[in-house]
Amino acid sequence: MSRPTILTGRSVVDGFAEGEALVTSQEISGFGGTDAATGQIIEVHHELYGRSFKDKVLVFPGAKGSSGWASHFQSARVHGTAPAAMIFNIMTTKMALGAIVTRVPAVTDLDQDPIRIIRTGDWVKVDGTRGVVEITPKPV
């Protein structure tokens, strides 16, 4: 078992959560890109097409697409399909508001690129209050 890696960044939404990472190098759409009832990615060309972010620590560049992004992720929260936490690189209004209404710990501006460091399946602890992420790699 490898030792955990620590990344440090900035708090977006306070709180603590942990879970299995789901990582993508592609931005995610809300409306038209994800299904709030299931948490699945439905954008046809997306590399996570068909995968669900429910209860995962979602690691992604940021939000794209329709301005309904925050509404969509709020819907996911009400449906119980929201991610456990969000780690992202690119701050936009969609991303900031979306993280707030999803009401899950969220961090950005990490000292290393989380998309390169974290792999899908790694166990990730997100301290949204302090802006700290702890990664335990998935056993090989």
Binding site: S67, A70, T93, L97
Partner: peptide, 25 residues
């Protein structure tokens, strides 16, 4: 303003100043 297509229009074509807002903001 919400609606990404409207925001990009008023920012770029008219010189207004808006981010793409969400329903809550």
């Amino acid at each position: 303003w919400m609606e990404s297509s409207a925001v990009v229009y008023i920012n770029s074509v008219l010189g207004a100043r808006s981010n793409v807002e969400g329903a809550h903001s």
